[in-house]
């Protein structure tokens, strides 16, 4: 029986992973774009990205575009796998295979 992923299950982290997973493999989203998509605050988003990064689910790249710092977050292969399993578990719960 599959289990929900406790790291992904948190609502904002679920949104972050869903957004990153919707991109082509190895494509990432800029922090500002992710903030807009999830409706999160800077601090909250930063903290949850850190949690996902510690779990190895996302990679964070910081670079300078001109003089502006730009942070790009990308789902790793492990993160994509964990997200797919989490979604499958949610579907199983709805289908009544799990409670």
């Amino acid at each position: 029986m599959a289990e929900l992923d406790d790291i992904i299950h948190q609502p904002l982290r679920l949104k972050i992973m869903a957004a990153l997973n919707a991109l082509p493999v190895a494509s990432g989203l800029e922090f500002a774009r992710l903030k807009k998509l999830t409706g999160a605050t800077d601090g909250n988003l930063g903290a949850h990205i850190e949690t996902l990064a510690k779990a190895g689910y996302v990679s964070v790249d910081k670079a300078f575009v001109g003089k502006k710092p730009q942070t790009t977050v990308t789902a790793t292969a492990a993160g994509r796998g964990a997200f797919a399993r989490h979604v499958a578990t949610l579907q199983e719960i709805i289908a009544g295979k799990q409670v």
Partner: peptide, 16 residues
């Protein structure tokens, strides 16, 4: 679970 999946669908639509 259905709410979580709806949330995922919504964000995927917004990313697209």
């Amino acid at each position: 679970a259905a709410e979580a999946l709806a949330e995922i669908d919504d964000i995927v639509q917004r990313v697209r």
